[in-house]
Design a protein around this nucleic acid. Structure first.
Length: 113
DNA sequence: CAGATGACAAGAT
DNA sequence: AATCTTGCCATCT
């Protein structure tokens, strides 16, 4: 049986290099409309063996969600995104209109969104 | 099994 | 623009 978190990881795995999605967007695509926090909770528990591009998920303000409990993975996140060609401005913000991932139409139809 | 834990988002101030 | 509410819940120990 697929757990809630596995569904979230499956969505994140669809995000291509050089694009990003917001927590709310991932929640919606995972069938968890209005529960963006669950995505944050799930990503906190990601390990490298899971092969989930967790760094491609940012908050709705277009910034990396910083938190002391992340042990520096928040700063690593920005570095990984820059490696994929994403430009951050001087305030650590990116242009969502430029970099946001647009899921394939079949995916949206399957979810009836 | 009860309590602790934690990467959000939108609206109000 | 920055800070403060409020809603929200699967996992881990």
């Amino acid at each position: 049986m697929t757990t809630t978190y596995e569904r979230i990881y499956d969505v994140v795995r669809q995000i291509p290099s050089g694009r990003v999605a917001t927590y709310g967007q991932v929640a919606e695509l995972a069938g968890l409309i209005g529960k963006p926090r669950l995505v944050g909770y799930a990503l906190y528990r990601v390990t490298d063996e899971m092969a989930v591009p967790w760094h491609r998920v940012i908050n709705a303000k277009g910034k990396v969600s910083r938190s002391p409990v992340r042990n520096g993975t928040d700063y690593l996140q920005q570095a990984l995104l820059e490696d994929e060609g994403i430009i951050f401005n001087n305030k650590g913000k990116i242009e969502l209109s430029t970099y946001r991932w647009h899921p394939p139409i079949e995916m949206l139809e399957r979810l009836e969104i």
